[in-house]
Every structure is written in C-alpha cells, then in structure tokens.
Write a protein that binds this DNA or RNA. Sequence first.
RNA 1: GGGCGUAUGGCGCAGCGGUAGCGCGCUUCGUUCACACCGAAGAGGUCACUGGUUCAAACCCAGUUACGCCCACCA
Length: 856
Amino acid sequence: MTDVTPGIAPDRPQLEGLEDKWSAHWADEGIYSFNRPSSRDQVFSIDTPPPTVSGSLHVGHVFSYTHTDVIARYKRMCGLEVFYPMGWDDNGLPTERRVQNYYGVRCDATLPYDPDFTPPANPDPKKQIPISRRNFIELCEELTTVDEKVFENLWRHLGLSVDWDQLYATISPTAIRISQAAFLRNLARGEAYLDYAPTMWDVTDSTAVAQAEIVDKEHPGFYHRVSFHQLDGTPVYIETTRPELLVSVCALIAHPNDERYQNLIGSTVCDPLFGIEIPVLAHHAAEMDKGAGIAMCCTFGDKTDVQWWRELNLPTRTVIGRDGRFSRETPQWVVNKDRYEQLSGKTIFSAREATVTMLRETGNLDGEPKPTMRNVSFYERGDKPLEIVASNQWYIRNGGKDEDLRQALLARGAEMTWVPEYMQHRFSDWVNGLNGDWLISRQRFFGVPFPIWYSLDADGNPDFTNPIIPEESALPVDPMSETAPGYTESQREQPGGFTADKDVMDTWATSSLSPQLACGWIRDEELWNLTFPMDMAPQAHDIIRTWLFSRVVRANAENGCLPWATATLSGFVMDPDRKKMSKSQGNVVVPTEILEKYGSDAVRWRAAMARPGADSPFDETQMKVGRRLATKILNASKLVLNLPESDPESWSLDQVTNPVDLAMLADLRQVVTTATSFLEKYEYTDALEVAERFFWTFCDDYIEFVKERSYGQDSAGTPSADTLSARSALGIALGVQLRLFAPYCPFVTEEVWRWWNITSIHRSSWPTPAELSDSGDPAVLSTISQALIAIRGAKSAAKTSMKTPVDSMIISGKPEVLAHLKSVESDLRAVSHLTAEISWTESDNDLSFEVHLASP
RNA sequence: GGGCGUAUGGCGCAGCGGUAGCGCGCUUCGUUCACACCGAAGAGGUCACUGGUUCAAACCCAGUUACGCCCACCA
C-alpha cells in the first residue's frame, strides 16, 4: 500500500500521475465497496449499462459513464451505501463476430471437439477455419477475458467509483442460470412461447433478428416490369424490385376498388417462367398508384407480403434457405423444373441475374429495368439486406400483439421518472409502434441456451407443442450436452427419444435481466431486498427501445413493478461536424489518448458540461478548460494550506469574524444549497456551474482581497483576530468547495484533501449549509467586487501594473453601501496599494469610484 | 408522412415574461511572494423567420424555415 501522509502542500503540486496513484489507493482501501446496511432506504442502487466488450469504447461512453459516476459519488457522500456494479455484456453475436475475425475461425456445430486446437498465428479472415462449437466457445471466453481487462483498466483510470466486487458478466454461469430461470417462469405464465412464423432473417450470420435490431438503409435497386399471363395468354404487367422471388409467387393482389383490374380479380394467371398458376386477389393494402397498381405477393419479399399471406391464407412457398441461398431441391409447386435448375443453390444476387436473363430470353421483361433507391431493412450490424424466412422461434410477449399488456407497459413508462422528461415520448412512441412480440431466439452458439428439449415421435419428428423443461433447481443446463429429464442419453435424436432446442437466447434476453442479475434475484435474498427495485438506470438515448424497454418488460412480468425508479439519459458525443461518431465513418475519438493528454479530471469536467439527454460536439479546446479548473484547485489549495503557521486543526467557524469572510461564507452557503438541489434532480451540470462560478470569484476576488491579511504580516508575534478569521474562512471554504467538486474531479480533490485528512474525500460527507455561517451579508462581497473592478479598470486603462500605488480615491454612494466598504477598509487599502486616505461621499446615486494613480 | 428535440456574439452553451449572460477564441495591458495550465481590462449579439397575446416577449401562443434523432413508407 502506498503511503499517505497528511501534511502541508508540496511545493510544486502536479496533476500528472494522480489517476494511477489514487485509483490504487481506492482499491486498497475499499472506498467504493458496497457495505450492506440494515435497510433499503440507506441504499442507492444503479443499474449500470453493461458495455459490449467486443466493441470498443469511445468518448461517448466515457461521457455517459461519467454522468452516472458523478451521481454515484454525490449519493455516497450524502451517506447512502451506493450499489454500483459493473457488468460485461460478453455473450452473443458481437462476441462471435469478433472471435471469427480475431482468430480467423468459424463455428461448425457438426465438428467434434479438438482439445489440442490452437488458433492460427496469422489468421486469414477470408479463409476461416471451421472449429467445433466447444472450441469456438472456448475462444469466445478467452478473448472476452482479455477485452474485459482492458475495459476495467480504462474505467479505473477514468475514476468510476464502481464496486468491482459486484462485477457480473452476461455469459457467466450465474447469468445463464438467471436467464434460464426467468425464461422458464415466462414460459409457465404464458409470456414466452414458440411460434412458427415469418421473421426477419440475417443471411450473413444465419440467424433471426428482433425488431429492435433492425435499421432501414437506402439501397439501390431496379424496377423490373414483368408480364404474367392470363389463361388465354393476355399479359398482365407487374413491377417488382425482387424478380428472383418470382418462383415464390403466391398471388397477384390488386385493390378492390381498382377499376383497371376488376375483371381480373378472382381469375387465375400464370407466371412467365415456372408454370405456377396463381389467383388474382383483392386486398385493401394494395396501393393503386404504386408500380403497376397490381402487386406480386411472394413468401416473402416484404412485410406487406406477410400481411397478405396471413390474411388471405396463401400457401408458403419459401425457396431461400437459412444460408441465404436458393434451395437445391426443386420446389414441388414449380412446373417447369428445368428453369429452376438455373436458380438452384444460388445466392440472392445470382438468382436475380439468372431470373432476369430468363425473363429477357422469354420476352417477359418489358423494357429495361429502371434504377431506384429503396429503403431496405438491415440488421444493425449487418451489410446485406434482411430476408423474411418462416421458422420456429421463441418470443416473449411485449405488448406488440396484446393491447392490455401494451397499456400496462405504457403505464410503467408514465410511472418512472425520466431525466430529461421528454425522453418518455421515445418510450411510448416505441411501445405504440410495436407490431409483434419480442423474438429472443438466435440460431447461434455463444449465448444462453434455451433450457428446452422436445420429445421425438415414432417418425423422429419433434413435438414442439409440449417442450420438456428442467426443474429450476437444475439450472443452468445445456440441453445439447445434458440429457432431457426422463430419458437416457442414448435416446438423443432417436425416434421415440428426445432432441435439444439448439438455439441460444439473444444477448438482450440476458441484459434485459441486468437488475435481477446484479441485485441477486433468486440467489441472494438479502441483497435483493436491499437493492431492488433499483434507484437509477443510466443509458444513452439510443438504447430506449432496446435495453431500457426490455428491462421494463421483464420486471413487469417477473416482479410486477418497475426495475428502477428513475431513468437517466445521456446524449451522444458528436464529431465536430455534428455527425454521429461511428467506426465506419472513421471519426471515432479514442478515449485513452484524450485521457492521457488532459487527465481524467479534465475529461470528466467536460463530460459533466453535457446536460442530460443533450448531444454534445467533441471539441478538444473544452478539455483545456477542465484541465485549467483542476490546476486551479491544486494551486488555490496550496496557497491556503501553505499560509504561515497553517494549521487545519485550528480552522473554526467561531474564529470567522471579519465582515468579508462572513459574507463569503454566507455566499458559499447559498451555493451549497443550490448545488445540492440541482444534484437531487440529477442536474449535475447546473450544480457544477454554480460551484465553479463561485470558485473563480473566490480565487480572483476573495483570495486577492484577503491575501495580505491572511499572511498576517502586520503582527510580529501572534496573529491577529482578523488574520485568524481569514485563515479559518479560507480553510473552511476550501474544504467545502473540494467536496462540491469531488464528484466531478475525484483525483485532484482527493489529492488536495489528503494534504490534511487521513480518510478519503469520497467517503466524507456532502457539505451542508449548516457547516457555514449565515450571519454574513453577501452584499458586502458584491460591493467589494465593484470596488475591485473600478481599481483594476483604472490601472488597466492607464496600462500600468496592478501594483501601481493609488494616490487617492473618492468613493461615493449610499450610506449603507459605503458602510460595507468602510468595514473592510484595511483590506481595500491593501489590495489597491492605496497610499493616502479614502474620501467618502454620501449620495443617492449608485456606487461610484474615482481612482487617482501615482505618477510613474 | 407521424413523433420528439434544437435554432441566442466566430465556436460551445446558459437564460424561458421585466434594461442580453458565461466559457473558449480575439484585442490591449500586466505579472514571477498559489497559479503562464497566470492575472486585469476590453471589443463583439436587432436572441432563425412571420404573425399574435401582453403595459412589457429571447422567453407565452399560432404558423414557417433549417438541422438532428426516432418511427412509418419498402410491388
């Protein structure tokens, strides 16, 4: 343990190295440990966002986590035990992708485990080596461990006051157990269900994705005008951007009121290539002014197709497989089998080319394809358009199909406190716009397995309607390696035996349980009762529709309450051109460099200047301002601590008798009240501003004004009462201000605090008005400021030194204002270097000064 | 197309009914006994636009424009 010796300030105090020095101390001393108190009301618990460790941290994260830390430190100083865990979101697709790229491997679940496998030294991302599921998961675990250490080091360097003993990870056995238990309870209550339905499918990663993960992007395409044929050969033209889906066509759809197609509706037509006979049907969702006004309905080209397929009871003609390729088997509804040969096994892109070629050859392409830009759905991390594929998937009810639940969740949104308030709109907009339940299953590997088996009938077909589930006490389970209850392992995959559900839960299905996970649900009842429902849920505003909403869904279902009382939202850090920072744009600012350059306190100061919810442009010059504050704190403290015969033990409110000193403390008293009320409302920026404004005036006016007196140079022996008054006032004000700044600049305030305190400032108590005198008259201080401005102005106008003596000064003003100045006349004479008497002139006018300088 | 937010000195922001504020930057001057990661003084704005309410509007109301975010639109 490094030695901490209280004492006087060093000669040349520095900011360099404070991060390493104090973060090590804090860890040793357990300053941020959560010590279980006796009751819930002594706790402030925070649902920290678990960062995705496979990603990289950027300045936006640093800002957002700092916002939370400021509140955490404030609450801790207010005497609450702060439950401030950190979580790593390390399961799921992002980790898998990182492992694939980092090691140059891919998971092939059919391969056996190779205990001696070592990843290639020089991975070739283009030639990924197939490895077994278990080998793949081992690499995921290996890499996340490394990544997590990097994250932890950065958080410690930034000064986050998290309790590292409360660390959790979304792939840990505990997280798997919690996720599976919550899922089984959802299942038992009918909130989770398995359904065969069309879902958005990512062909790159070969998995289903949820509504919340879908983003729309502009994507170039072509309108193809294609002719279908009535049975007598008359052509019917449709326009499509997806000609390759012609083989999946189920119907042509026109609007019931469309006069052009009245005679066609109800008839049968034939597609131009495959000999598929389909009906022409009417549906109100067909838009008369779009394309040819009559649409080809395929399974599935877009969401309207899904709607028609469902509402018109159309057949399912899926040809695109989970790998994004056209089925190698010729579908049984295709009549012209040889034509399908041209598509078999092809990617969507190649199949489109082949289809267009065939249309051209047969004369069924009318004119040339016309270019267009269309909005297409993508997985948020994907680069190929999503397909719609019908498959078995697990869902959790989220109000998307259930009006009562939707209303209940909207009510939860209204019940919680939003900082800032208007963010609640984003929540209700999202809930109101849901069009389906929450799809939680993923056809991937590194994730929480569904604790589910299915019995196989005599033909080996699984019975999806009666899943086999384990006892909750048996969790966590891996159905792929553990035997279904009531069966023997030899019956796996055998007719009459059982099979495992091979899917894993999406990472959101686990992170949606972060309050349950962190607070000890079903594993630590005492902790659970002390910390849940939590107090504060911080996050950036982009995550409202995902993490924030999903936690509300889960807590509402499982606990019948909100997961926390208050949601606080941070904005983004934008690049200087006001664009969102993103890897693909290459405009991401790496936090380590900026922390290195300006120091953590400076970066934290800048973060705190970004108000809740507000986006903030990244601007390095702003970091310098924070740096300047930290330096100023260091130097002002040095002055106070290094006054002659400085003795912090003797600082006492009783000694403060001088009117200036009392006025300053009365002013500070007001600052404490204001800052505290801002922090209670999570308005950390306003609290900082009010403290900082005071601090600069304190340095520039107050300290300058009382400096001479505080040195006590007049008294040869014992300091005068006025000198003691200044020293006590300086010391008391310093102690209060350091504590006001402690949540923002934890390093420099701790450094200075320990010059005369044994224990950490971060476990000291938040300043209260009661610590400060209320007998002073703050008007004295503002009168003095006016005097200083007049004196300095005269010297500045004369382009001379501030030390230039003042020959004479005439002060006129109302008697009560003059009285203020008369009471502090000796300080005024000292600061202005006045050599003669002051002439006081009473008048009804505002205060005015006439300053005559000594000739040079 | 719907929702939300933002428009204030060169830049970043505060003010949200009573004579325009802060920080950075800029100009001029000063200084080494807390601090050059310093101090002082100063220049700089018809508060996006158009109407309205009011004795009084940057602030309230209606509308317009621009920008940002979210959602819908995907034949």
